[in-house]
């Protein structure tokens, strides 16, 4: 992140280093399931081998590349920040996203912890607005930090009048 692609500075906080492991595991499990299903199909259906073979090879190679590259790339990109006025987060890898949401328009603040995240003490902070496309998701932050930020945001948004549309 030497130069900025757009004229915004990066948010203040990086995500936890453990998130690299989380993303790698998630990717590994996803591709393992897919490759497993394909392999099963390959072994069962003789007639389909001619076209299942190439697909299986592509999935395995692509899965290996993603599992190695994606977590490191994401760790370099993902950042987040909560100021007195707004939530600001950068995420993605091949497609990068900058999201800014004013606190006055926040409707709900959730922390979500999947089984892998629970095991690693991580959490995903989800900040939703009245827009169906406006949710800001901040994955890979420390569970305690996430809970504290969610509490603060909830307190602030309760003070804001109106229905935030």
């Amino acid at each position: 992140m030497a130069e900025q692609p757009i004229a915004l500075r990066p948010p203040e906080h990086r995500v936890e280093r453990r998130a690299i492991g989380l993303w790698a595991l998630q990717s590994l499990i996803g591709f393992a399931v897919l490759a497993g299903l394909l392999t099963a199909a390959y072994l069962i259906f003789d007639g389909a081998r001619s076209w299942l073979g190439p697909i299986l090879v592509v999935v395995v190679v692509w899965g290996a590349v993603v599992t190695v590259v994606m977590p490191l790339w994401r760790y370099a990109v993902h950042r987040w920040e909560v100021t007195e006025d707004a939530v600001y987060a950068v995420s993605g890898w091949i497609v990068r996203e900058w999201r800014v949401v004013p606190l006055s328009r926040i409707q709900t603040v959730d922390t979500i912890r999947g089984p892998l995240e629970q095991a690693m003490g991580l959490a995903t902070l989800v900040v939703t607005t009245a827009s169906s496309r406006g949710a800001v998701k901040i994955p890979g932050i420390d569970a305690q930090v996430a809970a504290r930020v969610a509490d603060e945001l909830t307190k602030i948004t309760q003070r804001t009048p109106g229905d935030a549309t």
Binding site: P5, R99, V101, R105, A130, S131, A164
Partner: peptide, 29 residues
């Protein structure tokens, strides 16, 4: 109710960005 910038690798090389204004109305953004 929020602003989203989106940029793929190719868009980055071309110096382009998609800017989305999210809203509670209509299509949501």
């Amino acid at each position: 109710v929020g602003v989203t910038f989106r940029q793929s690798l190719l868009q980055r090389r071309l110096g382009l960005v998609t800017v989305e204004a999210t809203t509670a109305a209509g299509m949501g953004g």
